[in-house]
Design a protein around this nucleic acid. Structure first.
Lengths: 275, 275
DNA sequence: CTATGCATGTCGATA
DNA sequence: TATCGACGTGCATAG
């Protein structure tokens, strides 16, 4: 047989280089995957497998149908048919070995140093293997996130309080950095801690830490204001108990200001959805 | 043409039901994916795409080659050729729509309510589509995690301190729960906070919160002990400043005790790896 | 449903 | 390399 792979198809040589291998024997699959690893391709394996992991934690996954992804940087993902998270994985830069063992099956072994971790996938059946050399230089921009929110409020401090003047962002205080530092209309120092999502008790405690560190370092008691779109009950209880303040911020207002700054309008997703 | 799909292959009907579609037109891909969605299959699309997201945040990903997974429960993952994390995603139970638009391309639109979030993938080229009905009832056991560590130490408190008696696990204190509550050999109350990984300043602050809440509720100052395999410098600094204690715990010892309790030995991964 | 805390969290920035 | 804090964190669990 000239070609050791059944149903082997090579497509789009000049663009995405992609190969598929349908219903191979485990031995054929092993050869195909080894070759794809040498090419540093992204590999997707669909079939029936068991998974063992040992490292920072330890787990065992019994037999079932899943798909396994080996990426071009050595990361490995084992995905079940439901759920966002992979059930098992190995981070980038893992060393990957593939072997066929007659008595066991197709082994995909990923090892990582520091911390030392092992992931072993044992396939008892392979339905499909895909190998693809993906080229992806597309820019990724997250344009509504915590840094954005911080910058917008730094430029428009009235969103927090009238008369507030912001003097620094990410000001080092103690062993950390407070999001915003400024003075209020009475000239009193103000520390602002920002949360993009609902603020928890932890955020209140974090702010308290900054307030105390500031007092130790500057000998002056600053106001501490926690700014967030919402607050958990325990956050409010803790804030009041610790003598701190809080302000709601309307994320929609922040977004509006962000979009005003961005000249080129980003098309709404509604434009794509049907009426 | 009887079959609207080129290179359509149906395999393993009695086991994993899998179909592939090679180098389809965008229109063919749309039809194939719609059909697969009706079957509630796991779908993998490999090709060139752009991605927009808007919801809790907002992002745009420019053109590049990726693979997109639509799982049987409505979760969507957009993966670049490197990295553990998907660059974009939609959680389970999202509503998915697929459409072909001559001027735009192949649209995969995933919408989620509460919070309202949109994900739109626009394919300009599709190299491969895979549809697979995966059946996965395999049990997943994580046998070294924080609850395990807590239970082991609860049964063997000498790992923390000689003479310590544990009276409660997950004891409610204030608005949270402390991992272990007990009394030392002198009858003084002890609160133990456990970390499975290196303890940070946050962990120390969390423990302090429990100690203060306990004092408020019981009128008695308890000892607070942070137990972890390692401690960051700022954690130690904070612990000392707050009058708290810390103890190293050897995870290997904990594992040994776990494995002793588990009668059936879990096979080592070394058994699979070559000599 | 919200609130809370763990996670093999991952990831990026920084010292 | 280790530490630190954000994350569209996800996720289970308790109330």
């Amino acid at each position: 047989m000239k070609n050791p792979y059944r149903h082997n198809v090579v497509l789009g040589v000049f663009k995405l280089k992609l190969k598929t291998l349908n219903t191979p024997s485990l031995e054929e699959a092993a050869a195909f995957i080894k070759s794809a690893l040498l090419e540093k391709a992204t590999i997707i394996i669909i079939g029936e497998c068991r998974v063992d992991y040992e490292g920072r934690g330890a787990s065992r996954l019994e037999l079932g149908e899943r798909f396994v992804v080996i990426k071009q940087d050595g990361s490995v993902l084992v995905h079940r048919p439901t759920g966002f998270s992979p059930v098992n994985w190995q981070p980038p830069a893992s060393v990957i070995e593939v072997a066929f063992r007659r008595e066991i099956g197709l082994l995909v072994h990923a090892v990582r140093e520091s911390p030392r971790e092992y992931l072993t996938v044992v396939f008892t059946r392979v339905n499909l293997v895909v190998s693809a050399k993906l080229v992806d230089a597309g820019e990724f921009v997250m344009y509504v996130d915590e840094p954005t929110m911080r910058d917008v409020i730094a430029e428009t401090p009235s969103l927090v309080e009238e008369g507030l003047r912001v003097l620094a962002v990410e000001k080092p205080v103690g062993s950390g950095k407070v999001d915003l530092y400024g003075v209020d209309k009475n000239g009193r120092p103000v520390l602002v801690e920002l949360k993009r999502t609902t603020a928890t008790r932890e955020a209140a405690i974090q702010l308290k830490h900054y307030v105390e560190a500031f007092k130790r370092e500057h000998g002056q008691q600053p106001r501490g204001i926690l700014v967030a779109p919402a607050f958990s009950p325990s956050a409010i209880e803790t804030l009041l108990r610790l003598g701190l303040e809080y302000r709601h911020v309307d994320l929609k207002k922040v977004w509006l200001l962000v979009k005003q700054k961005q000249r080129k309008r980003i098309p709404s997703l509604e434009d794509f959805s049907k009426k």
